[in-house]
Design a protein around this nucleic acid. Structure first.
Lengths: 131, 131
DNA sequence: CCATTTACCTACCGTGTCAATAGGTTATTT
DNA sequence: AAATAACCTATTGACACGGTAGGTAAATGG
């Protein structure tokens, strides 16, 4: 299940790409267009800045902006940064996960195969595919 | 993310298939082999009985049993019964979900495509593929 | 008939995440 | 100085997750 963090982040990226005119776009406008609580979006967008996905600028004339060309963003990257991991099970999501049953686990190969499938799907989609 | 409900259910099914000798298998044995709390498994296994995945029998000599041939079980069916839905977003998981932005949603087609991918993957896997 | 075994049932609980709100501070421009 | 907008800290209510506890009902063996 993809949470609002990932989904809203994706919609912000799309909004920024669609309204990309060189200047910064205030969150107020994005929140209004996307019909998402501005206060809640602040939290998500702040993380997007910290993750290096977008640029933020304070003060009058400030707002947010893409820091790459839209076609250089990959959906999987955005989702993974916001969701933490796209893996279906804890033993794959957490690299340091210890499981004594690992060698004998009958289901692990399936989760691994599925994990690869998910990864390939979202990393094969660019932001521009959503415009 | 697949929760323990779905994962444990799958392991119980595998255990039942591997130890399928015609008689009922007590949960105590399954819990011991799988190293899962028996008390917690009770909850999950009860739901599996209610869902019609397995048979339960009380009393001495009782326990649980598959009610179909192992090759007639599909992983997707088991997971979906236990997890409720495998859909990545609420607007697809809940059939009665209302969204005013549906027609304009730029991301919906991607979620739909991904949903189909997930569905096809797990419905293409049989229980016997995990033995 | 009684003890044992086993499933089945109801209730509760601690922790954590999700989605959001509230209110204030800093930075920047006009 | 005023306005704008990002940034920061704290809090909240609801809910799911993963489990525990203790008891009841059903079936069997001796």
């Amino acid at each position: 299940m993809i949470s609002t963090r990932g989904r809203y982040a994706l919609r912000v990226m799309i909004d920024l790409a669609q309204n990309n005119n060189g200047s910064y776009i205030p969150l107020k406008d994005i929140a209004a267009r996307q019909e998402i609580s501005k206060k809640y979006l602040e939290i998500i967008v702040k993380d997007m800045v910290n993750a290096g996905l977008i640029l933020g600028a304070s003060g009058k004339g400030g707002g947010y902006q893409l820091c790459r060309k839209p076609e250089e963003y990959v959906v999987g990257e955005i989702l993974e940064l916001m969701e933490g991991s796209l893996s279906p099970v804890a033993c794959l999501a957490d690299k340091n996960y210890e499981c004594s049953r690992r060698a004998a686990c009958k289901t692990l190969p399936m989760w691994e195969e599925f994990d690869t499938l998910v990864h390939n799907y979202f990393y094969g989609k660019k932001l521009t595919d959503l415009l």
